[in-house]
Design a protein around this nucleic acid. Sequence first.
DNA 1: GTGAAAGCGCTAACAA
DNA 2: TTGTTAGCGCTTTCAC
Lengths: 339, 339
Amino acid sequence: MARDRRHGAVTSLDVALLAGVSQSAVSRAFTPGASVAQATRKRVFEAARELGYRPNAIARTLITRRSRIVAMVVSYLENPFYPAIVERMSQRLQRDGYHLLLFISDTEAADALLEQLMQYQVDGIVLVSATLSSALARECARIGVPVVLFNRVDAIGNVSAVASDNVEGGRIAARALLDTGHRNLAFVAGLENTSTSRDREAGFREELARHGVSRYRRAVGHYSFDGARKAARRLFSTGRPPDALFVANDHMAIAVMDTLRHELGLRVPHDVSVIGFDDAPQAAWDSYRLTTVEQAVAPMVEATVALLMDQVDRKSASARRVDVPVRLVVRDSVRGLAG
Amino acid sequence: MARDRRHGAVTSLDVALLAGVSQSAVSRAFTPGASVAQATRKRVFEAARELGYRPNAIARTLITRRSRIVAMVVSYLENPFYPAIVERMSQRLQRDGYHLLLFISDTEAADALLEQLMQYQVDGIVLVSATLSSALARECARIGVPVVLFNRVDAIGNVSAVASDNVEGGRIAARALLDTGHRNLAFVAGLENTSTSRDREAGFREELARHGVSRYRRAVGHYSFDGARKAARRLFSTGRPPDALFVANDHMAIAVMDTLRHELGLRVPHDVSVIGFDDAPQAAWDSYRLTTVEQAVAPMVEATVALLMDQVDRKSASARRVDVPVRLVVRDSVRGLAG
DNA sequence: GTGAAAGCGCTAACAA
DNA sequence: TTGTTAGCGCTTTCAC
């Protein structure tokens, strides 16, 4: 009890002394699958409990070179799709005894951030909706820290990536609108330089063309709530108003719906149909009942962890890319679509 | 270049050798405020850059006993108030060179989790909307890990806590409803055993009583979306329907509004007024325009970090409690309230 | 201002 | 199965 005052610094040596074994024995007792006699392990655990000993994960990391920490960089959490990913990823990692170091940072600052977190000997890095400069990608490869891009595929270097099949998602959206007789279409883009927005639009455009619709209007919402509101206003203030909108994500789609209804006095889907992307929790709320292309969060997270662990275990060093299938979730924001 | 292949293990010794100085000099060069000559520092930095050296934060932690990592435990991120807190906390910590280790866990599992994360030598622990068993609180104190409760004050042990002035928030809500002529009131509780729900109701009840309203109906929503929907149904399926609802948080208030409007065919605020708590981003959306009691996220986070750092620096070891002021954000969900 | 030496708490060979 | 020894990469006295 006396040593308890020593500021929590109960070490494996203390335990060893009390249990009458060597320090290695203590280490082994706390290492699953190590070769220790049952009796020894028991003695060690008893001594440990008596002293309130807990292995020091930092010291262990120093020697094993495995921190069991994965860093995740997210630009912001306002878009409700991101919290869903963070939550899932954290839980999934915990299940395997890993922990999540979370960073909030926009793409520009991400490089500087990576510098920092590489000092922490993280076992892997997940970049959500961000890319990596080629210099940094090379650096990560050199250091040997696995990186996987989540929800973005336009890496410059040789980096693994997990994303939805965004092109197919765009096609699905186009088909849903076309099949229900909409012809006067518009697309609300996210950020122009992102693979998600580009791919979704590419699939959309392609499917329209296949059906002989060669033109559609477009506005850029920058993946922001206000940006989407402005985009909606623009689309309806000049030219022929669209009868259907494909919006690059749900967060913007909701902003668009609100603007349409409460500012422009339009009814959804009676006057305008809206289709989103993500299937964020809010899309299911009664006020929106948004028809949307679902991104399958669970499989995406699963694939990300698999890619990470593959690289951690050096099973494969080469960059891989996973495209997760998407599907349409039919609700009430597209006129004529069976719900 | 040859040593680059050595799997990223460039150490301070390597740099020292190349720069022609001692290892200590390298350490000092990378320590802000250490006493090194400009020339030495420059030589060190050049060598470091040439070798692609980055200080090993883990090794540093082992000796300094400061990891610059703060752990945050959150039960879930579905309630949009939480992502806002996580985002702010992460950014605030980054500003001071700290990092956020995020855990998702419900209150029951939190104890087991703390066991784990104490192994990581975190500099502090923030428990969001969760409490701590007295045994664990004692343990944390013994180890010397600062713990602060966020958004909950009912700690058993001697633990610091930051929360809004929930009692006052309840009073404010009551006053807003009373002042606008509502008399047939109801309260939708969160979880009965949480300080937030209890304090908000206490203030509400107290203010009602002060105005001679001794009775109000109540239903429990368990701080969940579906729970709130059920609570709303219950309130309107039997007895005299309320003309105003005070809901313990925005996430539930939104669920209630949706149920009222889309399931029960009631108009808000024409038929029923609704007032929430938090001022979550969604409360401002056009579809809701929810009048609500704001929890000031920024000051709350600031206070939490201050409490943490105080304890880290051993300025104060005693548990402190901070109550952050709240205010009413007037929108359109309360009939008769100037908006 | 700088270097030598010691050691943070742990695990990984290697012998026994 | 167990103990001994060495050392992960860093910071920190303590001399100089």
